[in-house]
Simulated scan of single mutants.
Amino acid sequence: MERRTIDPRPDWQRIVEAQGVIYPLARYPDGSLRPYWDESAYYVFSLPEVEALEETVEELHSMCLAAAAHIVEHDRFADLGITDPRLARLVAESWHRRAELPSVYGRFDLRYDGTGPAKMLEYNADTPTSLVEAASAQWFWMEDRFPGADQWNSLHERLVETWRRQAPLLPPGPLHFAHSDGDELGEDLMTVAYLRETAQQAGIDTEALSVERIGWDSLTGRFVDEQLRFIRSCFKLYPWEWLSTDAFGEHVLETLDNGGGTGSTCWIEPAWKMLLSNKALLAILWELYPGHPNLLPAYVDGPRELAGTKGAGYVSKPLLGREGAGVDLYGPGSPPVLRQEPCCYQELAPLPDFDGNRVVLGAWVVGGEAAGLGIRESAGPVTDEYARFLPHVIL
């Protein structure tokens, strides 16, 4: 793994916007605009390195599924902050019915610097973004700058194939694709639009709408779109913890309670993905696989041996935080600091520093298989909303 600098392509902003990255710039707190898509540098990997990362990702995914089964079997929902018995029961039922429920993708965030085993930082298996730039823009960048090179990137083909394979699980009628109107940058909009395109290429009939424009027909007890058509299936880039607790959350639970019967809506990703996108998963993984080379020690009841004069340091993460929000770092020797809200305490593993840039690897899983890589850099120790996306090649 190596970081190399390069001159950006002339008119790069127009190029990537035409490829779906309509958010190539990020606005910083001081009002300045700086590149989010950053092709002034790129990362190089060897083929054996990528093959080893692929094996790691698939092993981690299998371990996460085993941890989900453990949570359900041993009723560990409270560790995830799921204290509503009804919601816990519905998530468990979704898990038991997972073979009948379409599920498409997820993204591991990994700490990796090329010199040791990759370490799992978290798994967003419900609403991951940065997909368009990983699947599309960086592939076309490679073809422009390094024709004949390769890339860890079979995202598009695997997405189409996954939709095609799971199409028989969808109920009759169009598959609706929903994003939130609250998305100001357009990232959610384009992520959903891209996923909709891959579903269409798989031969699936689709419709687009926003989450805010999903209606509820109280007479029939069904969700409907703006044409008052029954929404039988819906891909939503909208977290389950919001979907189940918003003003219409009770109706979501009602239709889930229907167990796939008349009037129910098939949501993608399914409710059991709540088990994988919760940071408490990190602690359960460490409990089930203590000492695993791709895991970091993690707990939900406090930092334990990670704190104190002999501790390696730790990070406290909200169970459902995103974009680095609410993440606190405590260096080696720090005293234990317990937060009032439920969170996960994970061993501090500072992100690799490449020329002053802190790097995290986003390893994609599509249809249960490792499918590609996206790389984000940040100036600080936490990968936040100001992180930059950089392309990569295999040379």
Rank of each mutant, 00 (worst) to 15 (best):
F248I: 14
T5K: 14
L60H: 07
I71S: 06
S40H: 13
H156Q: 14
N153M: 00
F235K: 01
A178E: 08
S136W: 11
D109Y: 11
R89T: 05
E377S: 15
W216R: 06
E59D: 14
L65M: 15
V44S: 15
A66G: 09
W139Y: 13
Y43R: 10
M120Q: 08
G324E: 12
L175I: 10
L219S: 12
P117K: 07
R158W: 02
H292F: 09
S233R: 01
L253Q: 13
T220P: 00
G321S: 15
L219F: 11
L47S: 08
P270W: 01
D188G: 08
V160D: 01
L219H: 14
P335N: 09
A167I: 01
E287W: 04
G173M: 04
G173F: 04
T255M: 00
E287N: 12
P174T: 03
V211H: 01
K119R: 15
E184M: 11
S62V: 07
L25D: 13
H392S: 12
D113M: 07
Y386G: 08
M142F: 00
E55Q: 12
L329Q: 09
P336L: 05
G182S: 03
A363W: 00
N124T: 07
I82N: 01
D246K: 09
D84V: 04
V315F: 05
L228G: 08
G311I: 11
P381K: 09
Y123V: 10
W242G: 02
G368F: 09
A363K: 05
T262P: 12
M120H: 03
E197G: 11
V44H: 05
E305T: 09
Q201W: 09
R213I: 07
M142C: 03
E250A: 15
G311Y: 02
L253S: 04
G20S: 06
P8M: 02
K273Q: 12
A135E: 03
A137D: 05
Q138H: 02
S62A: 15
E385A: 11
D217W: 04
V224K: 00
E341D: 13
R358F: 13
L228I: 00
P128D: 07
F108G: 07
E323V: 04
L295F: 12
A134F: 07
Y314N: 05
F140Q: 09
E369D: 11
V132A: 04
E93Q: 15
E341Q: 14
G182A: 04
E133S: 06
R97N: 10
L275R: 12
L80T: 08
S264K: 01
E269S: 14
F45A: 12
E122P: 03
D246C: 15
H176Q: 03
E161W: 02
P48W: 14
F230R: 09
R164F: 02
D183Q: 10
E39Y: 07
G326P: 13
P297E: 10
T191I: 04
D150L: 06
L306K: 01
G261S: 03
V50L: 12
L175C: 13
L101I: 10
L338A: 09
L228N: 14
L25C: 04
I375H: 06
L110D: 05
L169C: 06
V50R: 00
G182Q: 08
F146L: 09
P29I: 06
G114F: 13
V91E: 09
R111H: 14
W95T: 05
E197M: 07
D301H: 05
G186P: 08
S32E: 11
H179C: 14
E269Y: 03
S40V: 01
